[in-house]
Design a binder for these strands. Structure first.
Lengths: 124, 124
DNA sequence: TCAACGATTCACGAGTAGTTGAGATATGGA
DNA sequence: TCCATATCTCAACTACTCGTGAATCGTTGA
């Protein structure tokens, strides 16, 4: 897991459709879903879906598997975890507060002293 | 921490210069560094740095603080952790393998059965 | 007030991402 | 073989991002 792979993965995740794709595919991992079924569930066009799946596959976040006329896409849960772990360790040097907030948010507990209820500039 | 904030944060992180910025600023958190000092350390132009810092600040990943003629930028470690935690929980539904790989990578242990030494299509 | 310094903003051009529709390709069944 | 279905590829277009240099703004100290 090197820097360029992590950058590609982050760029791949930084799009609403692809984040939805990852959410959907992680939910059905490790079997995955056929492209047509994904298109139906997320209401995206076939060509748009192919584009986004290709991005995710190139970033290593999902893997494709042909089965007769269908192509099943499955989330690569190990790769997704490795990307998050890389950001935690290499970019954040395992900073205690980063790790702590990550764990708390992941456990659905939120931050105890969450001073930033709304971010500067992102409120509507 | 809603979806649009996470998307903005991921997009902000998905750039080499900004990932370097985050690494640098997390390393000196919570004090932060003045913009000129950051520019020197990372060898980027002043205008380019201002652009990237603005991206990071808008995404909530760093915070600016004026001190006389200097503007100090500090990483918002809680926000960074929350973004990672959101991806773990909301997008990956706390999938055990994702959490596991994340924890292992963050602890520098790597994955035990890492079948993907190199990703499909990202090797040079 | 003035000069020096740090930070910000602006315009411009190049490159890339995203969306869409049309057509091509591959597979399975009648 | 023919048709229906599933997936892929391509071109065209729009919109955005990024890097750069110049100009501008704000603060400080003489």
């Amino acid at each position: 897991m090197d820097k360029s792979r992590v950058l590609a993965a982050l760029a791949a995740l930084a799009h609403e459709t692809r984040l939805d794709l990852v959410r959907l595919l992680v939910g059905v991992a490790p079997e995955g879903l056929a492209q047509g079924e994904i298109a139906r569930r997320l209401s995206v066009t076939a060509s748009g879906l192919a584009f986004h799946l290709a991005q995710l596959e190139q970033a290593g976040l999902v893997r494709a598997r042909r089965q007769s006329r269908h192509v099943f896409y499955a989330a690569d849960t190990a790769c997704i975890g490795a990307v998050l772990g890389y950001v935690l360790r290499d970019c954040c040097q395992s900073h205690p507060e980063v790790s702590d907030c990550c764990r708390r948010t992941a456990e659905g507990r939120g931050a105890p002293g969450d001073k930033r209820g709304s971010p500067p500039g992102s409120q509507t």
